[in-house]
């Protein structure tokens, strides 16, 4: 990353956080919160895609983050900052253990192991009565001072997390992940610790998934195991693909559009599922490269005549 990039991030981030002040009614605030949290989860999901894998286990790590916040706040009465972080830290630790074993496996097998893991964790959480069993936990509130600032707090946390993910992606480590995606055997032959890099990538993504979970808990105030099934990860993949997976901003745009669409489609009552499914199908068929691909196409079309002129 060049210096100008940091400045752009700072300015863009400040604008995004400041923009949340435009929303003062409770409903818009709830949607803004959902949008930012979805952006973070989509970016986390995409981060694992940098090594060419789809991690449906991420849904479970969002759950771990949420339950961390729930347990710390309602059972242990820990301070807010600690409650925000305990879930992500636990998610990271679990993901390192899980990753060390499972990241030797690739492609569809890794993907379906993720499904099994998310399902198993969901069922297990429902068996533990201390954390509310299948009913989940209630009363997970942020401190009262944050009441009027929750949407800005969520935005600030998410923008910071996105910035860190972006920095990592464009660092040497990020390029290493790209090399692993292209061909991990080549990376291995030049002496790269492929498994170590994969696990690190997975751990970072899981921390971010856990953070999305903590935010979810404080925003919804109520969590239940059924919120964190594999469908959650399915939607993250949808966000990434709708936006365009080649850039972090694609994931952000995809999450924004799809969450707004799903919030809107609530008013369709019984037809909401049909509508949302149709939206996914139409988008993927019309824009296989996502919104980012569409933007790119338009840009090329606009620039093409200029380039021709310059050559002439």
């Amino acid at each position: 990353m060049r210096r100008r990039d940091h400045i752009v991030w700072l300015a863009g981030g400040l604008i995004a956080v400041a923009a949340t002040r435009l929303f003062q009614d409770a409903y818009s605030i709830s949607v803004v919160n959902l949008v930012f949290i979805a952006c973070l989860f989509a970016a986390s999901f995409r981060f694992v895609m940098l090594i060419g894998e789809m991690s449906f286990a991420s849904a479970a790590f969002v759950g771990v983050g949420a339950y961390g916040a729930g347990v710390a706040t309602t059972l242990l009465h820990w301070p807010f900052a600690l409650a925000m972080l305990v879930g992500p830290v636990v998610a990271t630790l679990v993901s390192i253990g899980f990753g060390l074993i499972v990241l030797r496996i690739k492609g569809p097998y890794f993907m379906l192991i993720g499904f099994a893991f998310a399902e198993a964790v969901q069922i297990a959480a429902a068996q533990i009565q201390v954390i509310g069993g299948p009913s989940g936990m209630v009363g997970i509130f942020a401190p009262r001072i944050l009441d009027a600032w929750m949407q800005s707090f969520v935005a600030a946390v998410v923008v910071t997390a996105l910035y860190l993910l972006y920095r990592l992606e464009w660092s040497d480590f990020g390029r290493l992940l790209g090399a692993i995606q292209n061909n991990d055997n080549v990376a291995r032959t030049v002496g790269v610790n492929v498994l170590g890099a994969k696990v690190t990538c997975f751990a970072v993504a899981s921390f971010m998934a856990g953070l999305a979970g903590s935010l979810t808990a404080f925003v919804n105030n109520v969590i239940a195991p059924s919120d964190f099934g594999f469908m959650l990860a399915n939607f993250a993949l949808v966000y990434v693909k709708v936006g365009g997976e080649r850039s972090l901003f694609g994931a952000v745009a995809g999450a924004t559009v799809m969450v707004l669409l799903s919030s809107y489609s609530i008013v369709l009552g019984a037809s909401n599922e049909l509508f949302y499914g149709a939206a996914i199908v139409v988008t993927i068929l019309l824009m296989p490269q996502g919104l980012a691909g569409l933007v790119e196409k338009i840009r090329l079309r606009l620039m093409a005549p200029k380039a021709v002129r310059r050559e002439a």
Binding site: V8, W9, G12, G13, I15, A16, A19, L22, F23, S28, V31, V32, V35, C39, S247, F249, V252, A253, T256, V257, L260, S263, V295, E296, R299
Partner: peptide
């Protein structure tokens, strides 16, 4: 183009509003 995108996101939010 990348610079424009966070702004684009903010704009999308407002349209959503």
């Amino acid at each position: 183009q990348m610079m424009a995108k966070p702004l684009l996101g903010a704009a999308a939010l407002m349209v959503g509003g």
